[in-house]
Design a binder for these strands. Sequence first.
DNA 1: ACTATCAATGAACGGTGTTCAATAACATGG
DNA 2: CCATGTTATTGAACACCGTTCATTGATAGT
Lengths: 205, 205
Amino acid sequence: MARRSDHTREELETLITDTAEQIVSAEGFAALTARRIAKDIGYTPGTLYNIFGSMDGIYLAVNVRTMDKLLEALARPESDAPNTPLEERLRIMAGLYMDFAHENKALWLMLFEYALTGEIDLPVWYQDKVQTLFAPLEDVLTPLFTGKEHSREHKMAARVLWSSVHGICLMRETGKIPLISGETPYAMSDYLIENFIKGLHDRAS
Amino acid sequence: MARRSDHTREELETLITDTAEQIVSAEGFAALTARRIAKDIGYTPGTLYNIFGSMDGIYLAVNVRTMDKLLEALARPESDAPNTPLEERLRIMAGLYMDFAHENKALWLMLFEYALTGEIDLPVWYQDKVQTLFAPLEDVLTPLFTGKEHSREHKMAARVLWSSVHGICLMRETGKIPLISGETPYAMSDYLIENFIKGLHDRAS
DNA sequence: ACTATCAATGAACGGTGTTCAATAACATGG
DNA sequence: CCATGTTATTGAACACCGTTCATTGATAGT
C-alpha cells in the first residue's frame, strides 16, 4: 500500500491531471484509462475515484488545462502589436488557434470528442471556462462594434468567426473532411476572414 | 442456431445496418454495441464479424447511409426554385443542413464522433463519399466563379462556407460551445452568409 | 500504546470488442 | 436417399473497460 501521506489531496489532483495530460498527448484520448493512469502514478484506480469521482472528472480537468493553454497561446504578443489592422489581427489570431490545435492535436481533439460523447450536462464552471475562449476574439472585433446597440451583433460576429475557424481546423486535424489539395487551412481561414470582414465594413458604410 | 438460409449475405448487411441505424437514432451512438445489434436481429456477435469484419465496418455503413440521407435533404426543391437569388439559396441550403442535423441529431453526431475517435485512415470509398457532400454547395456558388482560373477559389469558397456552417451547427447540437441567448443558429448562419457573400461581390467589382 | 479515522487497496461486477474451435445446417455427388 | 464436404453460426473465452465497496493498514489523536 502506498504511503498514505506521500501526496496531499491537492498533489494527487495535479499528479493525476499531469499524467492524464501526458498520456493523451503521447498516445491519444483512447489510451487514457483509469488503470493506465493508476499504474503510471503508482496507485490503483480506486484512488482516482476518491479524488475525481469518475473518469469524467479527469477528462474535465485535462480539458480545463487545455483551454488555459489555448487562451495563453491566443494572447501571444504578435497579435497585440499596435497599429496592426483589424483584419490582420484576426488572421494572426486564427493562425494561432490553428497552430495550437496542430501542436496539441490530441488534447485539442479531446476537447470536442468528450463534448460530443457525453450525454449529461457539463458543470457550470466548465461552461464558464468555455465562454472565456471567445473573449480574445471579441476584443479584436471591438472597434467594429462601438455603441451599445451593437452588443448582440458583436457577440454574434465573434461566435460566427470562431465557429468557422474551428470548422476549418477540424477539417485539417481529423483529415476526414478533405482539404483541397495544395490549399492550406491558413489560406482558407484568411479567405474567410477577408471576405467576412469586407462584408462587415459594407454594412458600416 | 438460426436457420442458415434465413438471410443472404446482402440481406444480413442491410438488416444489420438498419438495426444499427435505428439503435443510434433512438438511443445514441453509445448504445450501439455488437451484442445489442446481434440480440435485436436474433443472431450472435460472431455473425456481425463474418459480415463487417469489425464494428468499424458497421459504423462506416451507418455513416454512408447518413450521408446519403443528408445529400437527399440538401437537394430538396425549395433550393431549386428559379430566380432565387444566390444568397438566399445559400441561406436555404444552410438551413436544410441545420434542420437535418437537428432532426437526425444522433446520426449526424456519429458522423463526426467516429471520425474523431478513429486513428486509422478511412477507406478511399468512404473519403469519396464525404467529398460528394460539397457538390450541392459548389453548384450554388457556380455563378460567382465563372472561368477556369477561379476553379480553386470556387472549391475553397464551398469548403470554407461548409466548415463554417458546420461549426455553427456543432455549437447548437452539442450545446457545449454555448450560443448567445436568444440567438438562433439560423440567424448566425444567415449573418455569416450575408457578410461573406458581400465580401465576395466586392472582389468581383 | 491504544484507538479511531480514513486513504488506499484489490477483488468483483457487468459491460465492451474481438477471436476461434466446435457445431449444425445446408449443397452436392453417388 | 444417404454420405460427404462446405460453411454460416455459435458460444465460450480473452483482455480490456469504468465503477463499486468491503477490507486493510498507515496515520493522528489521546
